[in-house]
Design a binder for these strands. Structure first.
Lengths: 131, 131
DNA sequence: TATTGACTTAGAGCTAACTCTAAGTGATAT
DNA sequence: ATATCACTTAGAGTTAGCTCTAAGTCAATA
């Protein structure tokens, strides 16, 4: 194991080959090993990075930020503290996002409940004030 | 009350005038009342819509979907059930998003904790496997 | 040997959601 | 009266993050 083509990695992590190549091109992935014919030959490390990026992206973290993080990682151990600060900043952002989503879900719950009462006939005072 | 200029509404809901005009242009807001000079004169209802849209957008709900919802609303009471279904579908999407964000926050917590242990000297086995 | 099919590249094109520009109007302050 | 200032419009421009196209290489199969 630890030798995969772009198609296999694409399938495994559900990220299109185009997106993977795009990530590599902009420096979001460390240099991926190649076969003698120049074909990408993903190792363990490359896969782990991709999986990490996928997870962060799924929460909406910006590519720009991930690039900064990888840039720090490339500079080695001296950047550990900066990396930690970067992640803390991003965690703050996600907590904010989490709050917004939770609020919006609550609001949807309320509205759906209202509509439920209307359609079930439980609530008769329906006016178009309710939207 | 119930008579506000675009500048006041913009300030109150923290949405730029440009964005508000854009929303109106694409039909995302009901027709906003105007003064005799053609200047927008926001009433209660317009404000409530804007606030609703802002809340939904803050959770990432697509404008296209919000337009569908408003289109149903405009058709009147007969669309109540469709509106409910639309909102239920969107709630599903938000629950998925919520899951992703929660997972990512957990992962960040773990990584930040790890970095904390490294910088505090508690953890000596630091290798660049940890990224 | 010819074709198939997965891979390669550079670079153009796309979508969502704004954001800005330029030119104009009309009420108010000096 | 003149200048200022918030408002108006249509439409162009921007940004992030892909996504697609065209042209080409190479190994394996019919």
């Amino acid at each position: 194991m630890g030798e995969m083509t772009i198609a296999e990695v694409s399938k495994k992590y559900n990220v299109t080959p185009d997106t993977i190549r795009y990530y590599e091109k902009i420096g979001l992935l460390p240099t991926i090993p190649r076969t003698k014919n120049g074909i990408r030959n993903f190792d363990e490390q490359s896969c782990r990075w991709l999986e990490f990026i996928k997870c962060m992206r799924s929460a909406g973290m910006e590519i720009e930020i991930l690039m900064q993080y990888i840039s720090l990682y490339r500079k080695g151990k001296s950047t550990v503290n900066e990396r930690k600060k970067l992640l803390e900043g991003q965690r703050e952002k996600l907590l904010e996002k989490q709050k917004n989503i939770n609020q919006t879900i609550e609001r949807l719950n309320y509205k759906i409940e209202l509509y439920e009462e209307i359609t079930s006939g439980k609530r008769k005072d329906f006016t178009e004030e309710i939207f």
